[in-house]
Simulated scan of single mutants.
Amino acid sequence: MKIGWLALLLTAQCASAAEHGAAPFAPARLEALITDSRLDEISGIAASRLADAVYWVHNDAPRPASLHAINGRGERIAQLIVEGVRAVDWEDVASFVKDGKSWLLIGDVGDNAGTRKDYELILIEEPDLQKSGGETLSRKPEWRMRFRYPDGAHDCEAIAIDMKAHQVLLLSKRSSTPAVYALPLAANTEQMQVARKLTELRTLPQPTASERQARFPSARLGSLPTAMDVDVESRRAIVLTYRDIWVFTRLKSESWMQAFARAPERMPLPPMAQAEALAFDRTGESVLVSGEHLPAPLLRFDGNDNSDRGN
């Protein structure tokens, strides 16, 4: 089984992307296989800020609305029920530390048909699993933020936290050109918020005419963004598509608009059924990827860049 997987991985790593430099990460290695039947549609992943090698994941529209904690072996170790919430289309989760507490931000932002009038962000405090006791936990949201876009409905599967600017970044999926929007991280959650459009992401490669006619979704839809994360320093953003991870590095005194305008560095994925979940680990030095359909691989890309990213 491992030999076959490695052969596929080597094939993927040999794919040519001459117009994009290689990202400063080692090739993917298989950290674990997720086989728990309760985790058959993983759409988001975020590293715990309280423990190493613990990750929070979720399905598309969980019933009840809940997150699951897994360890580095892909084993489910806890369920966190979000009280008073009905999940419509959860697509991503992000973690961060603020005011000495660890937080999880859930994005109920999916909209395949483009018909939703508004969307929601849900903030909950991350529980300390070493102190909580028990496999099933529950939390009430710290706040819930309803929002809309300034230019109509958008399907979105990618959110991230920029702690330097105290804002939430959202990346649309099915737009003719993916666009990056922003919302304040601390806002008046009693009122409907309107996301601010920052820029269009024109630097992601688009499928060729022949690829658009291909049988396999990874060829036809390979450029669609399915997840995003920003490292703890707010210097590096990573964007997941069905075929690749794209790395955008922001230089000192540079805005995300400027960073997203440059051609990103590329990290090719090995073949996956549906890559949907992406996150930096707790240190920000490695990247984790998983997705839908069991058994779901938990891939790890370790950083190999010792340079000063702030130059």
Score class of each variant (00 low, 15 high):
Met1Glu: 07
Met1Cys: 07
Leu6Gln: 11
Leu8Ala: 12
Ala12Gly: 06
Gln13Cys: 09
Cys14Pro: 01
Ala18Asp: 11
Ala18Gln: 09
His20Ile: 08
Gly21Ala: 14
Ala22Ile: 08
Phe25Tyr: 14
Pro27Phe: 12
Ala28Gly: 04
Ala32Asp: 02
Leu33Glu: 11
Ile34Tyr: 07
Asp36Lys: 05
Asp36Arg: 08
Asp36Tyr: 11
Ser37Asp: 15
Ile45Asn: 04
Ala46Leu: 05
Asp52Asn: 12
Val54His: 13
Tyr55Ile: 08
Trp56Met: 05
Trp56Ser: 08
Asn59Arg: 04
Leu67Ala: 00
His68Phe: 11
Ala69Leu: 02
Gly72Lys: 09
Gly74Arg: 02
Gly74Lys: 04
Glu75Leu: 11
Ala78Asp: 01
Ile81Asp: 03
Val85Gly: 00
Val85Phe: 09
Arg86Ala: 12
Ala87Thr: 07
Trp90Thr: 03
Ala94Ser: 15
Ser95Thr: 04
Asp99His: 15
Ser102Phe: 02
Ile106Ala: 00
Val109Phe: 03
Asp111Cys: 04
Tyr119Arg: 00
Glu120Ser: 12
Glu120Ala: 14
Leu121Ile: 00
Glu125Asn: 13
Asp128Glu: 07
Lys131His: 07
Lys131Gln: 15
Gly133Arg: 12
Gly134Lys: 05
Gly134Ile: 06
Gly134Asn: 02
Glu135Pro: 07
Glu135Ser: 13
Thr136Cys: 08
Arg139Ala: 13
Trp143Gln: 11
Arg144Ile: 13
Arg146Trp: 03
Arg146Phe: 07
Phe147Arg: 08
Asp151Pro: 05
Gly152Gln: 14
Ala153Val: 01
Glu157Tyr: 10
Ala160Lys: 03
Ile161Val: 14
Asp162Ser: 06
Ala165Trp: 04
Leu171Arg: 05
Ser172Asp: 05
Ala179Glu: 00
Val180Leu: 15
Ala186Asp: 14
Asn188Ala: 11
Asn188Phe: 04
Asn188Leu: 01
Glu190Val: 00
Ala195Thr: 01
Arg196Tyr: 12
Leu201His: 06
Thr208Met: 02
Ala209Lys: 13
Arg212Trp: 02
Ser223Asn: 13
Thr226Ile: 12
Asp231His: 07
Val232Ala: 14
Glu233Met: 09
Ser234Val: 04
Arg235Thr: 12
Arg236Trp: 07
Thr241Glu: 02
Asp244Asn: 14
Asp244Glu: 12
Asp244Phe: 08
Val247Ile: 15
Phe248Thr: 01
Thr249Lys: 10
Thr249Asp: 11
Thr249Asn: 09
Arg250Pro: 08
Glu254Met: 14
Trp256Glu: 08
Trp256Ser: 04
Phe260Ile: 10
Pro264Glu: 14
Glu265Thr: 10
Met267Glu: 05
Leu269Thr: 04
Pro271Tyr: 03
Gly284Phe: 15
Glu285Ser: 15
Ser286Pro: 01
Val287Trp: 05
Val287Ser: 08
Leu288Asp: 03
Ser290Gln: 06
His293Thr: 14
Ala296Pro: 09
Leu298Ile: 06
Leu299Ala: 02
Arg300Ala: 00
Asp305Arg: 10
Ser307Val: 02
Asp308Cys: 14
